[in-house]
Design a protein around this nucleic acid. Structure first.
Lengths: 193, 193
DNA sequence: ACTTAAGCTCTACAGGTGTAGACTCCCGAC
DNA sequence: GTCGGGAGTCTACACCTGTAGAGCTTAAGT
């Protein structure tokens, strides 16, 4: 009967808000979107966001927690492959493709790096999530530093392939990009020596 | 007589505004600072900025042009070295150090990637400046793609070492970072094969 | 049918934004 | 001296931001 969009369902509405906020924050960063815009995308009112999440900052934290919880493609599964560098290169190229969402967390962090408030909320979550997972998957000396460098690499690629982006990184065919990244990643993954 | 800060000097005032704007944009991005704040840092009034640069957007363009014009450390000079990878690794670690300004252009771009307006102004200038210079310095196939990947790498490192940043990238000693980057850069600089 | 309470919205406010237009000030030339 | 004009400022406006508080609307319980 009249499922004309959505009925009164708190849990579902909460999810819609989170989804809209995630997309909006990834697109424009913490300061780049207003709660009214997010609310419109979610089909609700701005004030409902505050009712559910306390404030815009609360919503931001909830979005961060949600995206960081997802196991991203840089996980141990890929690194256990026979040719981890090749495999990781493919995964990175795919996941940094414009319009791909799994790395929303990175995009959000980068687009929000301007506001110290938002950055302060995001950095610890990146460290506890993606960085920790990658460190676990690495072997050899300086695992933390190497993992952080890989993360920075991925972040730079994601950023430079999104929203306009650097032309060569958008237009170069997938295979060429993979072949370019592969040896560089191999150098970072394999313990030096 | 009474050189109590600055006399009426249009050129010098213009420079002060540009310097304040550059620092502010690098710190907080296009949308993150108001003209009033920039004006205060420069010791003038907000409206003077509009008198000189037409609008906030005009000021932004002027800042971009200024930073992009500077020959950055990723130039041919470094790549002509006997060991370009090593040399470039050192240069990158130094130039991405928190509090180092030559890469302001990158920071500004990244922090402003949220506003499509600002990004649209910045990307072409990065391509015409840093990307073009790096492409010129490279040899072998897929020069554009490889140069763009290097740029994204540098950008990610700069971002992840600024403003809080990823702890390992801030705390790891310089030599370890250089040693980590070197083989990866070698793989990107040398033509595959 | 009536009550209850959860789900949701409306109105309003205090503060911040970029900038247009009129204004004041002061140096240098006559 | 006085006058022109560039250097710099003041005031104001229309818009947008996050959010507090009161209000409405609907689904479920009995």
């Amino acid at each position: 009967m009249g499922e004309h969009g959505h009925r009164r369902n708190a849990a579902e509405t909460r999810e819609r808000i989170l989804a809209a906020a995630r997309a909006a924050f990834a697109r424009a960063g913490y300061d780049g979107v207003g709660v009214r815009e997010i609310a419109r995308d979610a089909g609700v009112t701005a004030m409902l966001i505050n009712r559910y999440f306390g404030s815009k900052e609360g919503l931001f934290e909830a979005v961060l927690d949600a995206t960081m919880a997802e196991p991203v493609v840089l996980s141990a599964a890929n690194l256990a492959d026979a040719d981890p560098a090749r495999r990781l290169a493919e995964a990175i190229v795919d996941v940094t493709d414009p319009g791909c969402s799994p790395l929303d967390g990175f995009l959000i962090l980068m687009r929000s790096a301007s506001s110290p408030r938002a950055a302060a909320l995001a950095w610890p979550r990146i460290e506890a999530g993606h960085l920790a997972r990658l460190v676990d998957a690495l072997r050899g000396p300086d695992r933390e530093a190497r993992a952080a460098v890989v993360l920075a690499f991925v972040a730079g690629l994601k950023l430079f392939r999104s929203g306009g982006g650097l032309r060569p990184l958008v237009e170069t065919p997938r295979e060429v990009l993979v072949a370019t990244l592969e040896p560089a990643l191999r150098a970072l993954l394999e313990p030096p020596g």
